[in-house]
Design a protein around this nucleic acid. Sequence first.
DNA 1: CTACACCAGATTGTATCCAATGTCACGAAA
DNA 2: TTTCGTGACATTGGATACAATCTGGTGTAG
Lengths: 226, 226
Amino acid sequence: MSAPDTLRDGNASTRIADGLREAILRGEYLPGDRIIQEDLSARYGGSRIPVREALRQLESDGLVRLVANTGAWVASLSMAECSEVYQTRERLEPLLLRFSAEHLTTETLATLDRLAHQMEDAPGVEEFLELDRRFHFATYDSFHTHTLGPLVTRLWNTTQPYRRAYTTLVGSRNRRIFHDEHHMLVTALYDGDLELAEQILALHIRRTRLHLERHPELFDPTTPPH
Amino acid sequence: MSAPDTLRDGNASTRIADGLREAILRGEYLPGDRIIQEDLSARYGGSRIPVREALRQLESDGLVRLVANTGAWVASLSMAECSEVYQTRERLEPLLLRFSAEHLTTETLATLDRLAHQMEDAPGVEEFLELDRRFHFATYDSFHTHTLGPLVTRLWNTTQPYRRAYTTLVGSRNRRIFHDEHHMLVTALYDGDLELAEQILALHIRRTRLHLERHPELFDPTTPPH
DNA sequence: CTACACCAGATTGTATCCAATGTCACGAAA
DNA sequence: TTTCGTGACATTGGATACAATCTGGTGTAG
C-alpha cells in the first residue's frame, strides 16, 4: 500500500510522518511505546527537525501523544475511548457510503465482491485486516471528499491496533456473521438500495463495537490525563 | 476565551499554534491569505522552527494549507466542501449532544437559556457568532470526550470564516427561526427528551447549511488541487 | 526500610546558519 | 503585444550546535 522509505514527497517531514504512520498501522510500534526523536532521525535519515514536524502531524492525527519537554508515545485508547470512536464511525461512515455509492461503477462492485470472498480465505490476521480495510475503503473511494474521507481514515487508524489485537485474540471464530454482513452490503449496493446499505453498515460497525467491548483486557486500563 | 500572546504552555509551537488559530477564528486572517513564517516568528517571538511545527499542527486541523517548498495559506473552502462539513456535523453533533445531555446539570440548563436569550440582543456579528458558539458548546461540554468533542470543534473552526461572512451578509434578517430553534432545543433538554433534542439540532444544522448554499459567492470558486 | 533530595545522563526545545526551491520582474525574440 | 527564458530576490527546508528540561538512579536522613 505504501512505497518504501525512499523519497516520495518533496519534504522530509511528510515522508517521515507517512513512514511512521504506516509503521504504527503495521503494528511495528504498539500503543504506549515511547518514541525517541533521534531513533526516527536515524531510521528515516535527516535531522530531528523534520522528525518533530512529523510528530506534530501524527499527534493531530491521533496516532501519537506528545508531552512538552518529556517525549512522544504511540497513542493508546481506553475501552471507553475506543467505543466512542466506533460510535462516531457508526454515524459517519453510512453518510460517506451514501455519497460514494452514488458514483459506484460496475468495476468497483466487482472488486468489492471479489474482496468480500477473498476475505473468507484470508490465512492470517494481517491479511484479514488488510482485506477488510481495502473492502471498506473501496466502498468509499468513489467520492472524492475533502473532510469526510480523511476523517474516517483517521478513525480507522486510531483504532487499528485494537482491531488487530481483537482479531488475533479471537482467531477465525465467529467470522461468519462478519462475512455475511459484507456480502449483504455488496448486494444492497448492487441493488442500488442506499438506505439498506447505510443500515447494514451501521449495524456492522455497531456489532463490531459490541464484540470489542467484551474484551476490556485489550485496552489501556487508565484514561490518560490530557 | 484565550490568554494573550504570553506564555501559556511549555513550548513555543503550541503557543504559536493556539495564537494563530485564534487569530484565524477572529477573522484576522482570511481564507486564502498567505502566511509567512518569518512574520509569525516576529509576531509571537522565537525562531521559525516552532512556527513550522505550529503550521503542521494547524494543517492537520484543517485551518492552514501547506505546499512543499512554496508556502502556507489560510485554508479556504469551496461551497461543496463547506456543505460536506455541515452534513458531517449534522450526523455528529446530535450524537455528541446525546452523550452530553445525559450529564446536564440544572446550572448548565440555566446558562443555556440565558445564552439563547442573550443572542437575541447581540448587537453585532462578532457577538452573535461568539454567543452562538458558546451556546452550542455549552450543550456539549457536560461530557468529556476523547474524539468527538475535538472533532466537532475542528469542524466548527474550519467553517468559521464562512459563518462570519454569511452572518455579516444577511445582517439580522431572518434570525427569528434561528433563535426559535435554540429555544426549542433548550426546552427539549429541560424535558429530557433526547430524541427530540437530537432531531432539532440536526434540523438546525441542516437549515443553516441550506441557507449558506444560497450564497455561492461567499466561497472559494475553485476546488483547490490537493 | 521508606521517603526524599540531588546529580548525571538522556532527551527534548530552540536559535543560527546555510542550502534548496520557488517567485516574479525584466528583457529579448516571435 | 504576447510569450518565453533568465536571473536576482524572497522564502522555505534542513543540519548543526547549544540550552532547557526531564528521568532515573544513588545516597542520605528519618
